[in-house]
Nucleic acid binder design. Structure first.
Lengths: 167, 167
DNA sequence: TCTGATTAATTGCTACGGCAAGCAAGTTCC
DNA sequence: GGAACTTGCTTGCCGTAGCAATTAATCAGA
């Protein structure tokens, strides 16, 4: 595939600054968010996020595959997260009524309590590491831009409309 | 430590949107950047970044610890990255003249060539996934905000001015 | 200069997450 | 109804990265 965009001039100064800073953010933010939760709540972010997704779902329950998608994790990864949560009694796996292949991960009362306990820590973390540094920016436009980052890609495994002839 | 900030109101709508979008970006961007480089160049991003840092350093050489800091990686992590790069002949480890404990990772000619070969792929990746979605935003302010995200934290292992009495 | 403390880097151990293989349940078509 | 295929989830295996322990070299003090 010959490059369709021969315009390889090396980014403007400002673009480069954004990319470099973003690169750092991408490495550092997950680390500190996880560290904060871990230190103050003994709860890794992967588990916190999973509890959060469940708490927001219709009956505090989601299918494993939904949950994996919500957390941007592979299904096998989510299997492990839920296994850990289940071992702590924060989540239960319940056979799905209308499709016996499926499982629902259900947030238990303990799980909800754990989430509510951890929430202030995480919120504080978010404020200190992110929110407090946003002044001067248009939040609506920023959110839109960031959403495009994440979604413009879709899943590489998804077959695109244009049939990929190569390979 | 009782929370010094009792103001735990749950973020405005816009703040929440930014945080959610950023959370997704943080998960997805590194994955797609790595995937692009991997697919088109067989080069993981950790190695690409390391070659890049070396190429920008004074004599195409950096101490292991410098390099680790530049790449936001632990020293042991960088040891492994450099080991891999050395095995491919892209980098050499050279004993440091003025401190025999230290090692300089030196970018070889092959390493520079590899970087130059991979560069367009990465640049294209950056454009498609990031730059192309920034319109409408003030890049200078965005970069500043992102830099504050990353630096406001410093290292948690670093003892802060206020002596931590707990523990 | 010899002893002890500190620093630079590597290695052992472990945890996490992805892919691919496996297994169980559902669907389709004859 | 049952053989072939698909779908939902789990498990085996592997690669990567961090922390703690280790080794080697330097520095500080008697």
């Amino acid at each position: 595939m010959p490059s369709p965009t021969p315009t390889q001039q090396p980014l403007t100064r400002d673009e480069e600054a954004v990319v470099r800073a973003l690169g750092r953010v991408i490495l550092v933010i997950p680390r500190v968010m996880d560290a904060d939760l871990m230190r103050e709540q003994r709860l890794p972010f992967s588990e916190y996020g999973t509890l959060m997704h469940l708490s927001e779902a219709p009956h505090r329950r989601m299918r494993m595959s939904e949950l994996a998608a919500a957390g941007d994790l592979s299904l096998s990864g989510m299997t492990r997260v839920v296994t850990r949560l289940e071992a702590q009694g924060l989540v239960k796996r319940v056979k799905c009524a209308e499709d016996a292949r499926g499982l629902n991960a259900v947030l238990t009362d303990d799980g909800l309590a754990r989430l509510e306990q951890a929430w202030p820590t995480h919120l504080d973390s978010v404020r200190r590491h992110i929110i407090d540094h946003l002044d001067g920016l248009d939040l609506v436009q920023l959110a839109r831009a960031l959403e495009r980052f994440a979604t413009a890609v879709e899943d590489p495994r998804e077959p695109s409309a244009s049939g990929d002839a190569s390979e």
